[in-house]
Design a protein around this nucleic acid. Structure first.
Length: 425
DNA sequence: TCTGGGGTCCTAGGACCC
DNA sequence: TCTGGGGTCCTAGGACCC
């Protein structure tokens, strides 16, 4: 039996989320901006039609935006994450094998299901009806082909494309009309190298010699070629694996020069990362801290140090992790620079249960630490994130990022619901 | 004035060991 | 004149994705 993988992808996801609560945005050109309102991370169809690229810096677009009346909103990840969960729960009803691949898309194994086109139609309808978000569905024999089928679906009014329903000739003709850069796993660099070799369409890549691709580009692209040929090399990852590294980094709202401000930021970021670490019941063996000046400021003196340290024993205690990142920060900090960004990375991540015992384990202290952290997490979950935090994180946070035009957290924050109501009237 | 954040996988090269 | 070879582990960096 032929394998059938569906890729369901939300249309203009962040824009669609905002439109759900502000119907007046429907039909208007809308963009969602990254943190600090830096660049464009989601575009409505009207904006795509204007030729505005993904990740374009916002400050360069302001003139164009004024001309066309583009509405720009800061990103509201709390809202998007909640709506994403709802979409994924609805889609999970269509297959026992679901891989949530990103905030706005998932793979579903739909092998063996009859009348796949109709099945895909009911996916679209149910998500639209239960959550209100429009989605497109691509179906094919491998994940890479399903991504391409979804790309085709996005251009169709039906919002559906099933490669498995096509003959070999029909599929090849279709793939011959798609640029090779559209393939999942072919980025800018690989795209231009492929073009130099004369491989410009998806069909040409599919027909390329696997050995040659393996030799010139490595194993990853060779797998992609096999996937294009209909051989599934990438399996569906049903249960989300625990993260192998946890990163928390942000640009500042204003340039930062003082060590004290960097310390606050590093404590805040380490605390967020530690929460994520505990949520997946893991501990980290290594912490890295990094700071950097603004690389786009060409005249200013540049400095981008980082330092990785091994902990004496694996930990997920915010205090232990902060102690390490702070000591690292103090070692790499130099005066005389305007810092634009700080970040921390937790790595060497193991399951808490796998933590090796040592001769000098202080089990009473470990128990106390676990209880304290569990209490901290519980309070923050119940009363809202950030209710309880280390004092070192700071109160005023002069360095915090700017978000000029953020919408209310309509679905997760009681105090924001009144705002939602006001917006509708 | 103004350019995001969080991940993954692969590879090459160095250190070290026997 | 002339100085091995192979395995493992770690790290940094590249490329990619959303």
């Amino acid at each position: 039996m032929q394998r059938a993988i569906a890729l369901v992808d939300c249309n203009n996801f962040y824009v669609s989320c905002e439109r759900l609560f502000q119907p007046a945005l429907e039909g208007k050109p809308v963009v969602i901006l990254s943190n600090n309102d830096g660049c464009v991370v989601s575009r409505s169809q009207e904006v795509k039609n204007l030729g505005i690229a993904m990740a374009a810096p916002w400050f360069k677009l302001k003139e164009l935006a004024k001309q066309h009346g583009i509405i720009a909103l800061s990103s509201n990840y709390t809202l998007y994450a909640d709506l994403s969960n709802r979409v994924m729960r609805v889609l999970a009803q269509f297959s026992p094998d679901q891989e949530v691949y990103s905030i706005d898309e998932c793979f579903l194994d739909v092998t063996g299901i009859d009348e796949l086109t109709r099945y895909a139609q009911s996916m679209r309808q149910r998500v639209k009806q239960h959550v209100g978000i429009p989605v497109c569905v691509g179906i094919a024999a491998s994940k890479t082909l399903a991504k391409l089928a979804n790309h085709v679906a996005k251009k169709r009014s039906s919002g559906i494309c099933n490669f498995n329903a096509l003959s070999d000739d029909e599929l090849n003709r279709l793939l011959g009309r798609i640029e090779v850069g559209e393939v999942w796993g072919v980025g800018r660099r690989t795209h231009s190298r492929l073009q130099e070799m004369g491989i410009t369409t998806v069909l040409a890549l599919k027909c390329a010699s696997g050995e040659r691709i393996r030799a010139e580009f490595g194993i990853t692209l060779a797998r992609t070629v096999a996937e294009l040929g209909g051989t599934a090399c990438l399996s569906l990852d049903e249960c989300a694996r625990p993260r192998a590294q946890i990163i928390c980094s942000r640009s500042f709202g204003i340039p930062v020069t003082q060590l004290a401000d960097l310390e606050e930021a590093v404590i805040a970021y380490t605390s967020r990362a530690a929460e994520k670490l505990r949520r997946q019941q893991s501990m980290a063996c290594c912490v890295q801290v990094a700071i950097r000046t603004n690389p786009n400021q060409l005249i200013a003196p540049q400095y981008q140090p980082s330092l990785t340290q091994a902990l004496t024993e694996p930990s997920n205690d915010t205090r232990v992790l902060c102690h390490a990142t702070l000591s690292g920060l103090r070692q790499i900090y130099r005066t005389g620079y305007a810092y634009q960004k700080a970040g921390i990375v937790l790595s060497g991540i193991i399951a808490s249960d796998d933590k090796p015992r040592s001769l000098f384990d202080d089990s009473e202290a470990q128990q106390k630490s676990a209880t304290l952290m569990a209490t901290l997490d519980l309070i923050n979950r119940r009363m809202g994130s950030g209710t309880l935090h280390l004092l070192g994180e700071g109160i005023t946070k002069s360095w915090a990022m700017k978000r000029g035009n953020v919408s209310p957290r309509y679905t997760t924050e009681l105090s924001d619901i009144a705002l939602a109501h006001a917006a509708q009237n």
